[in-house]
Nucleic acid binder design. Structure first.
Lengths: 362, 362
DNA sequence: GTGAAAGCGCTAACAA
DNA sequence: TTGTTAGCGCTTTCAC
């Protein structure tokens, strides 16, 4: 008796779950499996598997015939079944913590690049910065046997590591883990700030101020350090103290007014974010200063809508988040295949020069 | 001979795949399976399954003991194995086409709500609006046996349906499918525009202009229609023709200048987007018009950074994208369990009133 | 070069 | 109430 019929007999006493538990096939057809292909091609399932995966020793003619039949039948092999056997799902979890996605999305895009465009896919979870939800999602991911997890932060302050001791590699992106034994990918913000200020100095500015966000943020401290460092190297001093405030345009406008009053000779402002810089640009203009003729401006984030809506368009430090995601994805794949590479991996920033920092006309 | 030992024997001749094909467990421990729990609790695997899933008839004491053991051993059941059996993966695909995520992200968030916070997870694919990539991702999703697919558009123009005839339900969100037999969730933009204009009329405006985006966009046409409709109902006419242009602030600024020149008596502008509205706000101010005292302003998108950075903060039509996502998620779940609900499902907009449309001081 | 068969880890029918 | 067993759809070893 041919094997395929024996298989068919077995199927008769098949598993029947409640109807609602089976996904509805929109086309009504039964899903074609490897058995169907085997039967149609007149070979065994083992041969089909080998033919389709390019493994084993097969006659070219057989391989071709099987492939043709598979294509004709519209056979799409089940990754679920393969996973059960190989232990890999070619799926990773991506945990994002920022609701608006300004930081996580570029990270996701970069990760997608590294994960090979569908080779490995990302299960995306938005925790809205809630640890309970995060825990919940991690469990969900582990149940689904993801091969690894990327955690995309929304601030650069170190964050506590994922709870529940996930049994798969984890890479932290943008916000590093507070545990040094974890693997994190961060942006070199200090260097970014330095580059921004060096650019201002190189284009002839000497009286440089710094308007930035809330004191408590690691980013703010790091950028202040970078700024001071660059100025110091050039034998200059910051004009006044750093102006700490919010991340908003309103704060930028306010700061610009205060700044022109207290330091009328300022000829450049390095801002902690593009939003702040936009506010400063508007504020300066309303105080009668021309940008960039009288005062040059550099922001941070290089966030298209803000940087290009600004008048004039804003020179900005790009945080290279896509590269962060790419690195995180690559590190995760490496960790999955060859074991974890703990430590903090740093990605450089990139200064994008636009009109707001053109050399002074004078 | 006890059963568990027989099981153990079987395991000896177990499958061995190349090392690199097995995910690395960060903790080195072997993954604990249902068999381990069964052995430790002194029951059979069937009993463990029933105990953990709350099914079947079990003594309370047994159920409790099994649960305790499972917890103690840190057992996390494999959704992969369960999927193979039940045919459901509790995973859906989410295809986004807009790189920046301004439209897709809120849709994702809404979908997450509907998908029950991890009950069902989303495999997110960013096609960058490339049909080849889209096709590729769809195949990837089908291989992984997702239960369904949500396609989040980036424009409201109807889009061609997903290629490859996916054998699972598909719901189109924001951009509807051009095939009426598909299931789509869209925003009622016409009503949104009408509401915006009615709001302006209600607050005493009579000379209303419309500055909007490129002629080719469905959104633009729909919003023009809504605007005209609302004005007509109030016995009014649009001031001049609609001003078609880009979606940018620059265009808004330019249009404001032109508008005040050609129609100096204009007392309100309904703009096709928040970016345009911001540009118009700046442009008007620079032409000596006060917002909202002389001219009221309403935008579309209610995009936080733009709407709240605007001076004054911008009244805006919120496209309710999160609700679109929620509806899409709910419809998809329904389609998965009970069969598709084809047709176009409409979600209303929501006017968010801020300072830019306060009643005229006069 | 190809076929047969043993599972991957779980669920549910059925037997005890 | 609990145990036994047959698969879900695939991959790989091993025998032919």
């Amino acid at each position: 008796m041919p094997v395929v019929e024996a298989v068919e007999e077995k199927v008769c006493r098949s598993y029947r779950s409640p109807v609602t538990d089976r996904p509805v096939r929109t086309d009504g057809r039964r899903r074609v499996g490897i058995v169907d292909v085997a039967r149609r091609a007149g070979v065994s399932v083992g041969t089909v598997s080998k033919a389709l995966n390019g493994r084993g020793q097969l006659r070219d003619e057989t391989r071709a015939r099987v492939q043709a039949v598979a294509h004709e039948l519209g056979f799409v092999p089940s990754a679920v079944a393969a996973s059960l056997l190989t232990g890999r799902t070619y799926t990773v979890g991506l945990i994002m913590t920022d609701h608006h996605g300004r930081f996580s999305l570029p990270v996701l895009h970069g990760a997608e690049d590294a994960l090979g465009w569908g080779e490995t896919l990302a299960l995306v979870c938005d925790t809205r910065d809630d640890p309970i939800r995060e825990q919940h999602y991690v469990r969900s991911l582990i149940r689904r046997r993801v091969d690894g997890i990327i955690v995309a932060g929304r601030r650069t302050d170190p964050r506590p590591p994922l709870g529940g001791r996930p049994p798969v590699p984890v890479v932290y992106a943008f916000a590093r883990s507070s545990d040094a034994a974890d693997c994190s990918v961060v942006v070199n913000e200090e260097a970014g700030a330095r580059e921004a200020v060096e650019h201002l100095i190189r284009t002839g500015r000497r009286r440089i101020a710094h308007v930035t966000g809330p004191r408590g943020h690691a980013s703010v401290r790091t950028r202040v350090d970078g700024t001071r460092h660059a100025l110091h190297e050039a034998g200059l001093e910051l004009v006044g103290e750093p102006w700490y405030g919010g991340w908003s345009e309103v704060w930028g406008r306010f700061a610009a007014a205060a700044l022109t009053r207290s330091h009328p000779d300022v000829d450049a402002v390095f801002c902690g974010s593009d939003a702040i810089a936009r506010g400063v640009a508007d504020g300066l203009r309303e105080c009668g200063r021309r940008v960039p003729d009288d005062v040059a401006l550099v922001g941070v984030d290089n966030w298209q809508p803000t940087a290009e809506g600004c008048r004039p368009p804003l020179t900005s430090v790009d945080l290279n988040l896509q590269e962060v995601g790419r690195t995180a994805g690559a590190l995760l794949l490496r960790a999955i295949e060859y074991g974890a590479a703990p430590g903090i991996h740093t990605v450089p920033c990139r200064l994008v020069v636009r009109a707001s920092s053109a050399p002074a006309s004078g």
